[in-house]
Design a protein around this nucleic acid. Sequence first.
DNA 1: TAAACGTGGAA
DNA 2: TTTCCAAGTTT
Length: 288
Amino acid sequence: MSDLHEPVLAWYDEHARELPWRSPAATAWSVMVSEFMLQQTPVARVLPVHEAWLRRWPTPGDLAAEPAGEAVRAWGRLGYPRRALRLHAAAVAIVEQHDGEVPPSYDDLLALPGVGDYTAAAIATFAFGRRHVVLDTNVRRVLARVATGVELPAASVTRAERTLAAELLPPDDPTAATWSVAVMELGALVCTAAGPRCGACPVAGLCAWRRAGHPAYDGPPRRVQAWAGTDRQCRGRLLAALRETEGEVTQARLDATWDDQLQRARSLAGLVEDGLVVRTPRGTYTLP
DNA sequence: TAAACGTGGAA
DNA sequence: TTTCCAAGTTT
């Protein structure tokens, strides 16, 4: 399977996007911020927020010194605002436990709020050049197609997938790091979920899925997330009102964001429970 | 393990 | 217009 290395690495060398967090000058903190923002959010929407974030908070200490609410506000409309809260909490932990420096070890990274297996491996790999299996949705899809011959991977990472990815990882640290980002990029630009561009793929000739005639996905139905009318949409409306207001927001202002009183109250309580919103003694609401 | 958790652009 | 889905984590 190491037949894949040379063509994928060569393709990446020629086609990789220039992204701020891939710059040789990028700090580990810049990489970490990008990984948080890129969780379930497209690159195009992350770019401007990432730039503003790093300009305002060049180090973990700069962010940790401000209230968490400032992180939530600066997060803007990237979505999943609990990530902003967790990034702030991670910055605080880095100051308190790691002398203000993003730790290079996978285990230390994994212990930070909002950092799971993927993000820990990604930061250790892309910021510090360490050798880890980086399994994101792109890598999983590429390997499912090229090596396994199916259109899409299972709902969650399987043992077999992790073993395969580990076997494919080049032995030396720097090549392993480039390989991981290269496979991710291939999945993002060529071997996409909807319309794979096999004509532009450097390993089309080695692809098991292509060889099998591109059989359609044959697994259990992939559940689509409902949106309209959900608590998530309601929470989004409420938090948007908080973000766009400096200081306290009245109950009346929040009431205007959503018709269903019961759902509105439940969603607001959830935001308070999550720490994204604080209720003041006056009955108004603010960011934390 | 499955469900909850935002948002907006592309097909 | 509706559906899909984008560098996941947490509980």
